[in-house]
Nucleic acid binder design. Structure first.
Length: 267
DNA sequence: GCACATGTTCTCGG
DNA sequence: CCCGAGAACATGTG
């Protein structure tokens, strides 16, 4: 479910209910996530206060009052939400906070992970530029494209280069920019890179305004669906006609993932 | 049964 | 070193 807009939407909807709250109880019902949840996980968190909720790429960062960070990655099917009363078999971790709010981590495929890190430690230092940050400039993107022969779509999805873009938004961004997914990054002209840069900011911002994309079971921090899935221009629309020019949208695999583009609108 | 799924990480090989 | 292909992870949907 989660690319940058979904993670950001969860952050925005969860923030008012968790910021400043103390963790009163943690129940770990399933430790077998992508990385095993450590036995002392609950003990380390209990009694700690969440001072802030931030995002880096596709990671959620709960800042703790002892300086450490609760790091959450939602993998492919993870949800983090204030929960209803009923429990699901895929509710793996449950937090009870000092304001009475219950936050549940649910993840059927268990590709996500949840761990406590020291500041500056671990996977966060391997992340590329966050496309919502001021460091993401056309010049930065041009530098990333220099001498890289790989397709621009896989470059955009490489978390070590640009942190937060996944398979849905890479296709949507490149449609808006008018660039084919398979174009070699080093072949892009300055105006094309500028268009991709602008489209990245625009598509991600618009998707956040719509509350993310719910193509199967993504929900925000309050359990509500997103709305951007109804505004896809190419993603999952292979065989349909392009809304801009009428040409049939193509679907073809790239880097092991399905990609979608309009052969007329995108060069 | 088969294909496919919003992600990451590994191996193997060119 | 760069990069692609393919597999693996676990579960669900069509």
């Amino acid at each position: 479910m989660p690319e940058l807009p979904e993670v950001e939407t969860i952050r925005l909807t969860l923030m008012p209910r968790v910021a400043g709250q103390t963790v009163e109880e943690v129940v770990v019902r399933e430790t077998r996530l992508r990385q095993k949840v450590k036995a002392e996980f609950g003990v380390q968190l209990t009694g700690r206060r969440f001072t802030a909720l931030r995002r880096a790429g596709k990671y959620l960062l709960f800042d703790l009052d002892d300086g450490r960070i609760l790091l959450v990655h939602l993998g492919m099917s993870g949800c983090l939400a204030t929960s209803a009363d009923r429990t699901d078999r895929h509710d793996h971790v449950v937090f009870r906070l000092s304001n009475g709010v219950i936050v549940t981590y649910n993840d059927p495929r268990r590709f996500g992970c949840m761990k406590i890190i020291e500041p500056g430690e671990g996977e966060l230092s391997d992340l590329g530029v966050d496309p919502l940050s001021s460091d993401f400039t056309p010049e930065h993107l041009r530098e990333l494209c220099r001498r890289r022969r790989r397709p621009i779509k896989t470059l955009l999805m490489d978390q070590a280069l640009v942190a937060g873009v996944g398979n849905i938004y890479a296709s949507e961004i490149l449609f808006r920019a008018g660039v084919r997914p398979a174009r070699g990054a080093h072949t892009l002209r300055g105006r094309e890179i500028a268009a991709i840069h602008a489209a990245t900011e625009e598509v991600l911002a618009e998707a956040i305004r719509w509350g993310g994309s719910s193509i199967s079971d993504y929900r925000d921090g309050n359990g509500n669906r997103g709305g951007f899935q109804d505004r896809f221009r190419v993603y999952q629309r292979g065989g349909e006609s392009c809304g801009r020019c009428g040409t049939t949208i193509r679907a073809r695999p790239l880097g092991g993932r399905s990609s979608f583009y309009c052969p007329a609108c995108q060069k």
